[in-house]
Every structure is written in structure tokens, then in C-alpha cells.
Amino acid sequence: MNAPIRISPLFDVQAPLGPKWSHVDAMQTPASFGSADGAKLALAGIGDVSFRRRAGVKGPGAAAALAELGIATPERPNSFLRMACGTLVARMGRTEFMVEDAAGGTRTAQMHAQTPGAGVYPVPRFDAALVVTGERAIELFRQSCAFDFSSLVLPEQPLVMTSMVGVGVTVVAIDDPSGPYYRVWCDGTYGGYLWATLVEVASDLGGGAVGLEALGRLAQ
């Protein structure tokens, strides 16, 4: 009984490419699409990190409920923070949050176990989650989205909700010593279309789909 319990929303579009698979957090995820992954990553790489466990909460009591569990929340709407333990906390709007565990993290499990108090509404998340990276990532966004990602001020840890190739997405821009990279979430049912379309555009830019081995710590 070592079959994966969780299926990535991107599985159906990834399987025909025949990647080398790995199991992370009980989800079958591409480890590598081939020897060119590293070169693609440097230009415009699209990675799948849907395996990360996540949970949402909204309502006037949402921030307090997270604080009870020791989860820090960003001060401003449309920004995110990374806790010391690696947990990613995104604040969408005034009273809505999404929490994503780091490897082996248990924050979201605690959230699921919490009995919601007044003004706290748990939001189930079924996201497709992508990493978009590479020196031509901005060009990729220019071709797929009307929002200008080059206008973001990275030290402010910005979060953007917009429409990319017609799909509603949440994007955070992460400042990294190796250069900025992006995390993109969308509803899982649109994930295959978003992934395939972004990979197609990325291919024109010399990039494409990349596996976890090439992503390395960017998959965190």
C-alpha cells in the first residue's frame, strides 16, 4: 500500500511527458523532465509544488484564530510572510489568509483541527501551485497577464490577485539571492490548462516544465 494518496491537479497534463516521478508529502510529483531542466530553469522554468499542504481561513476573527495557533500574519492586505519555520502565510484582502506548510510542517493540520470560533470561516483549498522562475519570467507574465509584475517592490513581499490566461490566480513575488521568483496558485480544476499554457509560452522563451531536482530549494 504505497500508492500515493494525493493526486496533483496537474497529473493528467504532466503524465504524457513521461517525467521521472517522486513522492513528496504523499503526492506523486515530477522530479525531472530530463537533462535540460537546469537550462530551462535559468530562462523560464515552471515547476509543480501542488504537494505542499495548505489551508485557508477568512472572516473578522481569522487573524486572531491564526495567532492562537502561533501563526504570524502579514500586516497589510495583499502581502505575504515566511515564518522562521518556513511556513508561508499569505494575506489576501483584509480578512482572508492562506497558510502553506514547509516540508514536514504541521501548521495546516493544526488549522484543520481547530474548532472555528465566531467570525472564523475555514476555506478548503484545492489549488494547483506553481513555481515560475528564470530571467525571462517577467516576459512570460507579459504574454499571459495584464498585470505588470515588474512594478512590484520585492522587499514589501507583495501578493497579487489577477487573471492569467483567463484564470484567476494568486501570485507572490519572492526576493531571492539568485534573483526573484514567483509562486502562483489557482483553482485546481483550471490548473492543467494554466500549466500547459504557461509551459507552451515558456518553451518559446527557451524554458519549460522543470522537476523538483532542478528546482531544489525554490520548491520550498
Binding site: G93, R94, A146, V160, T162, S163
Partner: peptide, 9 residues
């Protein structure tokens, strides 16, 4: 909340 965006959003 989100600022100026295309009306298609």
C-alpha cells in the same frame, strides 16, 4: 483593494 486592473478581471 487590488488597485487598477483591466475591466476583464
Amino acid at each position: 483593494i487590488n488597485g487598477s486592473r483591466p475591466v476583464s478581471e
